[in-house]
Design a binder for these strands. Structure first.
Lengths: 209, 209
DNA sequence: GTCTATATAACGATAGAC
DNA sequence: GTCTATCGTTATATAGAC
């Protein structure tokens, strides 16, 4: 019962955090063990003492990056709420999660596209099962004529796209819209305020127009 | 007048195409010159004969990957059409472009996030200028009360997100929805049919409900 | 546990024969 | 132009002192 993550030696934790930062910024192949050591303020060989190899260290970082993000999403989709409230709630909360971890989506998806076997599929399959009730809820509301006439999967992809892509495409949008960093953060802040309503409005058929 | 790209020796072209495939699949740092040589069916040193260094070869591939995609988009946004038709047209055509080049978005965005100075900003600034008239058109229609009440930039980000992200997130969606490759392509085919209508419906206020 | 020093392998790049 | 052989560097990883 004392095997919490907090039990790791301070050094091991420092290494992990340094590795997470560098890996997320530069990817597996772009990362140098030396840079991780420097950032952690320790010697290079200590990396191997705690985590046998670069690959093993990366794997730890990668798995935990996913685990930190996925379960929160799933739980948001399974709350017992009417569809419009759930959409609003999900959009707001998910944006908060991603604002706190803006580099994770590109990190996960880049490595996953390079190496599709990296992700233990059972993790995502678990997510798949948890998402089914939400898709079913969408289908039920669709039958009742309460939503736009679109397959549930397409609707979910639309929502996830609008939530995640702005952070992946950030450097492009900043140039096109001529925004500095502060302006882009303002843009995201505005988005957090406006997107929930837009998504609800796009997905639900308003009954009072 | 004989400086067309087709004038390159067959070897030079083979190298370029091999490099493009490998770079797009594995990124700059993940790519080995040996792998490019193997795929091109030639010797490693020939790579340096035609393109001095790995960095220079990558730069060529990267610039041309962008040039192949960007101008088409811009032209679609500048056609002289009423907003709803333009949205429909843009969505359809852009999906065709991206279906033909599904790996390019992640390739561009990953390298751009790692190295924001890589992209000659003037290229994107050019895009920015070309996009302004479209944003202006959105604002005009918004004033007339014809569109959803959202800043033009937010609307454009929503559209680009729904167009591009499904291809970047493909491996995740395939597992969550339990799709094999054929099923996913069917999903995209369905999307091409349904998305234009959804976008128009989401952005434009229908006047006859 | 943490360091210094070194082994080992891989990669980009070049020299030189043909 | 294209090849073989090799250089010089850098990266991961290990050995061994403290």
């Amino acid at each position: 019962m004392k095997e919490n993550k907090e039990e790791q030696s301070s050094t091991e934790l420092k290494i992990f955090e340094a590795a997470r930062d560098v890996f997320q910024a530069k990817g597996l192949e772009g990362t140098r063990m030396q840079e991780i050591a420097d950032r952690a303020g320790i010697n290079k060989s200590l990396l191997h003492y705690y985590y046998r190899s670069k690959e093993k260290l990366f794997e730890k970082v990668y798995q935990l990056s996913i685990i930190r993000v996925i379960p929160q999403i799933v739980s948001l989709l399974n709350e017992d709420l009417p569809l419009d409230q759930k959409l609003r709630n999900f959009t707001e909360k998910y944006l908060e999660i991603i604002i706190a971890n803006p580099d994770i989506p590109l990190f996960i998806l880049h490595e996953l596209n390079k190496n599709p076997t990296r992700l233990k599929t059972f993790m995502l399959q678990e997510v798949g099962k948890k998402v089914q009730p939400f898709l079913e809820q969408l289908r039920q509301e669709s039958k009742k004529g309460n939503t736009v006439d679109l397959p549930a999967e397409q609707i979910l992809v639309n929502i996830m796209s609008m939530l995640i892509f702005p952070f992946i495409g950030r450097p492009v949008f900043q140039v096109i819209f001529d925004m500095d960093d502060a302006a882009f953060e303002q843009f995201i802040f505005e988005r957090k305020r406006l997107l929930p309503g837009f998504i609800v409005q796009s997905v639900m058929k308003s009954n009072h127009s």
